[in-house]
C-alpha cells in the first residue's frame, strides 16, 4: 500500500516567488523600472527639457483625439507623410525592379551600375535629405525624391540577388518538360523572386521612411517629420517625446500588421519558418548573411 502525500497548496508567498522568476515578470518589471526612473530622475537632471512620462502621455492622448496646437493633427501629419512615402517608393520600385533584373541578367549591366548601387546603399539618407532640400526647396518634391533615392538601391540590390538566386535545377526541369517561356516565368521565376520582392518592399520602405522623416525635418513645411521639428522649435519637449513614441508605434504597427502578415502569406510554403517575433534577431540574421543590403539606423 502506498500513501499518496497530497501536496500542500502553495502559499501566496511561494506563488509570488515563482512568478517573480518568470521572464514575463522581468518584462513587466523592466518597463516599471524604466518609467519610475524616468519619473523620478528627470527632475534631477540639469535640464528642464525632459518631460515626465505622464505629461508625454497626456500629450499623446490629446494628439490621438486630434487636439493639437500644431498646424496639422496627428492623422493629417502622418497622412501627408504616408502619401509621400507611397509615391516615392512606387517610383523607386518602378525604376529599381527593371534595373535590378537587368543587372542580374547581364554582367555588363551589372558592372555599369554596381559601384553606384554600393555607394547608394552606404549613403546616409541624411545626405539625400539635405541635397534635395537645396535642390528642390521646401515642398513635396524634396521628401518624395529623398524617399526615391533612399529606397532605390535597396530595391535594386534585392532584385539583383533574386535573379542570381533563381534555381537552375528548376529552370532546367521546366525546360526538360518543354514548358513554355510564359509559364516558366510565372511559376518558376516569379515563385523564386517572391521573397526578394518582399525584401525589396521591406528594406526599401524602411530606408525610405527614415529618409522621408529627415527630409521633412529639413526641407518641408508639413508631415510627421516636420511636426516633430515644430515641437522642438517650440521647446515643447513632451511634443518631441510624444512624436518620437508615435514613430516607434508606427514602425511596430507596420511590422506587426503589414509585414508579418504579408510574410506569412508569401512564405506559406516554407514550413521551417517559425514566425520570427523579434525583428532584432531577423535583422542580425540578415546582416550576418549579407552585408550592406539592409538599411542602417541612420535616422
Amino acid at each position: 500500500m502506498t500513501t499518496v502525500a497530497t501536496p500542500l497548496p502553495p502559499s501566496p508567498w511561494q506563488k509570488a516567488r515563482t512568478f517573480a522568476a518568470t521572464p514575463r515578470f522581468a518584462r513587466i518589471l523592466s518597463i516599471m523600472v524604466f518609467l519610475l526612473a524616468w519619473q523620478f530622475l528627470a527632475p534631477l537632471l540639469p535640464t528642464d527639457l525632459i518631460p515626465a512620462p505622464l505629461r508625454v502621455l497626456q500629450f499623446m492622448w490629446d494628439e490621438v483625439r486630434a487636439i493639437t496646437l500644431a498646424r496639422a493633427n496627428l492623422y493629417e501629419a502622418f497622412g501627408i507623410s504616408l502619401r509621400r512615402l507611397a509615391i516615392g517608393f512606387a517610383l523607386a520600385f518602378g525604376v529599381g525592379v527593371p534595373v535590378g533584373l537587368l543587372m542580374g541578367v547581364s554582367r555588363s549591366i551589372e558592372n555599369f551600375f554596381q559601384d553606384f548601387v554600393v555607394v547608394g546603399l552606404a549613403m546616409p539618407s541624411l545626405v539625400w535629405a539635405l541635397l534635395t532640400g537645396i535642390w528642390f526647396g521646401m515642398g513635396d518634391t524634396s521628401p518624395v525624391v529623398t524617399v526615391f533615392l533612399a529606397a532605390l538601391p535597396f530595391v535594386i540590390i534585392n532584385m539583383f540577388e533574386g535573379v542570381r538566386d533563381v534555381p537552375k535545377d528548376l529552370t532546367d526541369m521546366a525546360a526538360a518538360f518543354r514548358i513554355g517561356r510564359g509559364r516558366t516565368i510565372r511559376h518558376v521565376i516569379m515563385g523564386s523572386l517572391m521573397p526578394f520582392f518582399f525584401a525589396s518592399l521591406r528594406y526599401g520602405l524602411a530606408n525610405g521612411w527614415k529618409g522621408l522623416v529627415l527630409a521633412e525635418v529639413f526641407a518641408s513645411t508639413s508631415g510627421a517629420g516636420w511636426t516633430i521639428q515644430y515641437w522642438r522649435d517650440a521647446h515643447r519637449a513632451q511634443g518631441v517625446f510624444g512624436y518620437a513614441l508615435f514613430f516607434v508605434l508606427f514602425a511596430l504597427l507596420l511590422e506587426r500588421l503589414v509585414f508579418q502578415r504579408l510574410s506569412r502569406r508569401v512564405f506559406r510554403w516554407r514550413p521551417e519558418i517559425v514566425s520570427v517575433n523579434s525583428t532584432a534577431a531577423q535583422a542580425v540574421a540578415d546582416e550576418t548573411m549579407r552585408d550592406g543590403d539592409r538599411p542602417d539606423e541612420d535616422g
Binding site: D169, L170, M173, A176, I179, R183, H187, G191, S192, W269
Partner: peptide, 24 residues
Amino acid sequence: RVGYVFQSARLLPWRTVMDNLMFV
C-alpha cells in the same frame, strides 16, 4: 512525349503537390 525524374525531386517549393503536377 518525354518525362523526367531527376536526382533530386526538383519540385517548385512554392506550389502544392497538385499544382506541381499541373504545372507540367
